[in-house]
Design a protein around this nucleic acid. Sequence first.
DNA 1: TATTTTTAAGGGGAAAACCCCTTTTTTAGT
DNA 2: ACTAAAAAAGGGGTTTTCCCCTTAAAAATA
Lengths: 213, 213
Amino acid sequence: MKQFTVVIVDDHTLLSQAIQAMVNTFNKFVVLYTCKNGQELVDKFSHQENIPNIVLMDINMPIMNGVETTEWISKNHSKVNVLALSVEDEEFTILKMLKAGVAGYLLKDTEKDVLEKALIEIAENGFYHTKSVTTILMNSLSGNEVKEIDITDKERQFLKLSCTELTYKEIADQMCLSPKTIDNYRNSLFCKLNVKNRVGMVTYAIKNKIYTL
Amino acid sequence: MKQFTVVIVDDHTLLSQAIQAMVNTFNKFVVLYTCKNGQELVDKFSHQENIPNIVLMDINMPIMNGVETTEWISKNHSKVNVLALSVEDEEFTILKMLKAGVAGYLLKDTEKDVLEKALIEIAENGFYHTKSVTTILMNSLSGNEVKEIDITDKERQFLKLSCTELTYKEIADQMCLSPKTIDNYRNSLFCKLNVKNRVGMVTYAIKNKIYTL
DNA sequence: TATTTTTAAGGGGAAAACCCCTTTTTTAGT
DNA sequence: ACTAAAAAAGGGGTTTTCCCCTTAAAAATA
């Protein structure tokens, strides 16, 4: 019987080993190897190591995250299907992964059986999506797009500093700008991010991983 | 050969099932059942279900978290050893768990062999601690204590609302208090949390999981 | 019972944040 | 070469935040 090959990418060794053991109990699948981050996967793929049929991908990883890695796989190894495995259920994260080209998106609180089912579907049809993920995809296509907010480099830099206890005056000094220019960035960010005050900026930046605590 | 019993507490079903499968491969251990959160464990323990020798505990859980659950176990079932399994490596979180009475603290990026070793040590001696965790414990005992900040209920409530885009005036209305009273809470929190402004309060609250994004 | 802590509220003032507006230069896209 | 967007700076004003300091009742603790 033909077996499908799987590679697991997750920075938490214990979890990837545990998932590996679990996937190996599915008789249609076999795990080739595991990677601690996206960079490791890129290295292995580039050196013509065994290319798997499916990649089981975590999203929050250091060095090279799940979104970047999935984009790279879609470009360079389009035959490889990516199944995202994440704790995050936020719309914009899921949408990012869908755009990057994942074949499926599972939350880490799904059942063992669902994982097996998803792997089988992906191996056979190239994709598996739950109702909730499909709904998000629909909304996105029907124009209700979760708008990708584009902030400029300077705005981003200012936004990060706004998450510290510095006053705008001190931020101006650090960025070698007039407090009035800083006021412009503050104002444009309020509009772009749709927030009312500095607290809104801070929570936005943390939520969207622009600033890390 | 005598086997030790294990219960796993983790809100991510897939992970707890995977860890369960892994622990079951250790021939000295057997998993009795899993719980999605602390409340579920308290329910089962209270209804005189099988009480295990060891509890494998995640920290970030909804409803009842790892710290609260460990404290409850220490009080009501002191014979049960708790092995914490977390992604967090922040000092104050580890110290909180140590104070709550864990027998061990492992990061989720440890090896399978280390988990088995830790379980064996705990089963035999009642505790297992890595060098890094021991160092934190030492610093704590030698007076360099990571000070436990005690905020009152009202301060906590105000702190949470400060993380939203409400003005202090609006927070005062919501809490049915004079803006001047709110000003008192703000001021006392600035001192207690050692912050300079509202941004400092917000980042503190998020860091310490008083406010969830 | 006495003491400390918490909760509640106020007066007054300085600093920072917020919100309009306009202008100029530089940079990037069609 | 033209247009749009981004970067930089200022004028002038309101609101909010921040920081003292004082008083007093209620609640927890010794």
